[in-house]
């Protein structure tokens, strides 16, 4: 049996709550872009991940889906606790701020972010329409645009900041956007696949952490301005 998020979204109260969570996720993404301090960015990521966990929990309750409870629990364990703790530990050795790491000035970057989120809204149309195929509207026009906007804004964060923390947080917030998409359109994906995907994220966290530490040891900074030796 295929879970239909549209079932959840057909209930007005639930729809409002879920859309509210998603708007919260989008706002944290914008705030990450304008954050000046490394720690602020990590805290915003924690808040964003917590909202993702809540989204999974509420959807799980309404679909009576045990897999989504597990996703919610794993999100809290890995994204709200483990990843931020790892990053904060690294920050003990480098207390710099991020104000100098932006490739362009803040207003320009926010314009780019708005364009990126608009792209998300634009691309969601065909997805939501096509989701109605076969009589089962699995994808909802309510949430998919916001989720795609989060994904594309994460790309902006990665591309327009020149420090390893922002780039790593950008990648993890990209993953948050994808988690939301997976809950919205593939809530009943086999649980084994969800668990393996989560484990995979955990491994990626470790790899990112190791490489970030290596970069810090080599260059003595978290900035990626020096990473321009390899060209051509």
């Amino acid at each position: 049996m295929v879970a239909e998020v549209s079932t959840v979204l057909s209930q007005p109260a639930t729809t409002s709550v879920l859309v509210l969570f998603e708007i919260g996720v989008l706002v944290t993404e914008f705030l990450m872009l304008r954050a000046h301090l490394l720690r602020s960015q990590v805290r915003l990521y924690m808040a964003q991940s917590f909202l993702v966990a809540l989204f999974a929990l509420v959807t799980g309750i309404h679909l009576d889906n045990n897999g989504l409870y597990a996703v919610s629990a794993m999100a809290i364990a890995v994204k709200v606790i483990l990843v931020p703790v790892l990053i904060i530990r690294l920050l003990r050795t480098d207390q710099g701020d991020l104000s100098q790491s932006a490739v362009m000035k803040l207003p320009s970057m926010l314009y780019v972010a708005l364009l990126a989120s608009a792209l998300g809204f634009f691309m969601a149309g065909p997805l939501a329409d096509a989701g109605k195929f076969g009589g089962g509207a699995m994808m909802s026009s309510h949430v998919i645009p916001i989720e795609l906007a989060v994904v594309f804004m994460a790309f902006v964060l990665i591309g327009f900041r020149r420090d390893v923390i922002s780039q790593m947080v950008g990648f993890f917030s990209l993953e948050n956007g994808i988690t939301l998409i997976s809950i919205s359109i593939a809530a009943n994906m086999p649980f084994v696949v969800e668990v393996v995907t989560f484990f995979d994220l955990l491994v990626a966290v470790v790899a990112f952490g190791l490489l970030m530490r290596l970069h810090h040891l080599k260059s003595g900074t978290l900035s990626t301005h020096a990473l321009e030796r390899l060209k051509g």
Binding site: A130, G131, G135, G136, A186, P190
Partner: peptide, 11 residues
């Protein structure tokens, strides 16, 4: 998955 699930089933 979203495209295939209605035809093939979730699993």
């Amino acid at each position: 998955y979203a495209a295939a699930a209605p035809i093939l089933g979730a699993s």
